[in-house]
Amino acid sequence: MRLTTILLMALLSGCALQASKPDDLYRELGQEQGIKTLVTKLLYNIADDQRIADQFRDSNVERLRDKLVEQICVLSGGPCVYTGDTMAESHAGKNINDMHFNALVEDLIAAMNSQQISVSAQNRLIALLAPMHGDIVYH
């Protein structure tokens, strides 16, 4: 019981002392180069993932990579502009379900782990992507 209290206190103090800048996450992801590597690894993981690889069979992988890099750069507070289509437009009619979405999240987590991105940065990026779920699945 006491150990839990101490752990909670440690996390509490960690939270209280933390004041983040808008581009903190961008820097924790390794800025432009880091995000490019991350997205490349994500796309490799997707290609190896039998659950969703088929959905990307006819994709323009180069464009997808560029748009994903832009998107993650903007979301994480980096100096980029997203020039791609909206999430609703680009996923309409693709029959993406919850299982596909979560598979992609797992592939992203695996890519972030292999890039040694901290748990806190991983959580913050996923928190920024999660609200897109409704625009992407079952449309």
């Binding site: 996390l11 103090s13 960690g14 933390q18 004041a19 903190d24 901290s118 748990v119 806190s120």
Partner: peptide, 11 residues
């Protein structure tokens, strides 16, 4: 300024 301790404790 971001505290090193906060991050350190959590990580």
């Amino acid at each position: 300024m971001r505290s090193v301790f906060g991050k350190y404790a959590a990580n």
